[in-house]
Design a protein around this nucleic acid. Structure first.
Lengths: 343, 343
DNA sequence: TTGTAAGCGTTATCAT
DNA sequence: ATGATAACGCTTACAA
């Protein structure tokens, strides 16, 4: 970094005080139009640009918010980031992104690194059910929002979906189509949201006399496809399979493509999350639609309220998913005969 | 932001000088093991964490790099960001992300905002062919890399793919399968890379006696699907269609799904970029594979070299795409009869 | 190896 | 409305 033009250089050139230059750019105090225009033109000429690090240091206020997610290759998280960036950007906030890579140690390191930039707030999508210790320590000093993964109602603002409900709409759909043997496929059952989605579905399926098995295949679609393959080799094929995350949806599609299992014909499928690639197919997927925009908006609203001094009790915002029923789910009776295990 | 614990608080508590505390955390100067341990424990107790804004201000060195992209909802850019975050994170760098939203004005604003954080370097994926003016002004003071979209060889380091070559491997594949009437579908032909991909393909297709039409459908897959639909309504259906971006690929799939056009059977398809959702289908897509990891690595390598004082001539790195031939492309003769326009 | 003190560019306080 | 100046928390000569 080369020594850059400072507010003082501008002040000298413009024949005003540094305070005036500051006020021109920050707008904190009124400056006469004439002077302001002059200062701006001098600043332009010199190529001056505010040094945010200095202003944050001095004022203790930054317009930057950190977002920490467990997996940047997961479309769910990138779409959340996209939305938050859009909303926050409109209010002049910058986004600083960290990836914990589903590793609690990395999570702690990245969190500390992000915090060292003294952001105005932080949105954390934890990689485990545990709210990172640092968050609980700092939450009095800095607005935090925990989203997606956590259990219970921690002492921080949270935003989540109603996971039990998500499971239940899956179950309802399956019941309507008469599916009695169902595989519920999660990434990692240790994660509370995944567990709840599976449990929510299983409970209702069993209540209506069906049988639901639960299996986990991890968050990586390639590995997940393999694991699902092994599961299929050692079990009777269910009439329907439900993914509990977008990555698992991909794992299932990948596995089925490899094995020539036809979605909708050989087996019914419900995917999780609703991205265009799920419906832009000959057999579009029935999918549980997480309200990404609403989640992002809530995260921002919480953060923004706290950043503006809201010190009310911790909020716990819950959104509901909807189901888009498409052709990947068919009545159980209409499926092709299962041949795999016997052939 | 509450007044936070400073290096001086730690120094007082530990009975050492502030310089020593600084050296313990920065590792710039040796501190005896004993003292260092003591300082660390005191710092922990006090909940001290470095204030990066202060250290950047004083030292003029930051470990943060900015990335500005034209569309955060485009998987291509998010996967590049993911990769850069991974590589840079390993060297202790933070990533700060901006989205220009395909708007040159927004691009300028976001760029200025990112620069005000005094990053150590910036990777810019422009939203037009023009390298933003600010980049050319600042490039002497700060390492910049321009990637993906630009024309010619600007006076900055660049990373790109060989777009003509990408077009040519598409053409070769089509020729092999005997396709003579082809639609090349770009997002925006004003963009140099898109134009080159199309031109590269057209040239070779025509050389081998085929006919290539070129159309553009924009970067939004929903709108793109509509536009393609209208194109199909008013033209004879080609035997093959080629997407020149991942978003266009999605537009095509979406359009075909709506119209019941069977990929591989009714028409051959070559997609652009190679994400799992393209191959996790009954008819996996033939796809031009942009080497995302290599691109990200080159961006980082350029940046890193410049950040470490490399002042050699501007570099222009070009990567080549490969083609994964899959079942969405079939011999032209094997396609189903075209019924749409006549039925 | 450790301490002292100046200064990075800004904002905030207090005068004018 | 504008100016002078201290202070934010850190790094870095330089001194000890």
């Amino acid at each position: 970094m080369k020594k850059s033009i400072s507010i003082i250089d501008v002040a000298k050139s413009a024949g005003v005080s540094s305070a005036t230059v500051s006020n021109v750019f920050s707008g904190k105090k009124p400056v006469s139009d004439e002077l302001a225009k002059h200062v701006r033109s001098v600043a332009d000429q010199l190529g001056y640009s505010v040094n945010r690090t200095a202003s944050v240091l001095r004022s203790g206020r930054s317009k930057i918010v950190g977002i920490l997610v467990p997996d940047l290759s997961d479309h769910f998280f990138t779409s959340i980031i996209t939305e938050i960036e859009r909303i926050a950007g409109a209010s002049g906030y910058e986004i600083i992104v960290g990836n914990s890579n589903n590793d609690v140690n990395a999570e702690e390191r990245r969190l500390n690194a992000l915090l060292s930039w003294r952001p105005a707030g932080m949105a954390v999508f934890p990689c485990s059910n545990e709210v990172p210790g640092r968050v609980l320590e700092e939450r009095k000093n800095l607005p935090f929002v925990i989203a997606d993964r956590f259990s219970g109602e921690p002492e921080v603002d949270t935003v989540a979906i109603d996971n039990l409900h998500a499971g239940s709409i899956v179950a309802n759909c399956l019941a309507e189509f008469g599916h009695q043997r169902v595989l519920l496929l999660g990434s990692d059952l240790e994660l509370e949201p995944i567990r709840l989605r599976c449990e929510g579905a299983r409970r209702e399926i069993e209540q209506s006399g069906g049988v639901a098995e639960i299996a986990e295949v991890g968050a990586n679609p390639h590995i997940g496809a393999e694991r699902l393959g092994r599961w299929l080799d050692s079990h009777d094929r269910p009439t329907a399979i439900c993914a509990m995350t977008d990555m698992v949806t991909l794992a299932i599609l990948s596995c089925f493509a490899q094995r020539g299992i036809k979605v909708g014909e050989d087996i019914s499928l419900i995917g999780f999350d609703d991205y265009l690639w799920m419906s832009a197919r000959m057999t579009p997927l029935t999918a549980v639609c997480q309200p990404v925009e609403a989640i992002a908006q809530s995260v921002w609203d919480c953060l923004n309220a706290r950043m503006n001094g809201d010190d009310s009790d911790t909020k716990h915002i819950v959104h509901r998913c909807s189901l888009s029923v498409r052709e990947s789910t068919r009545p159980a009776g209409n499926l092709n005969i299962q041949l795999d295990k016997t052939s």
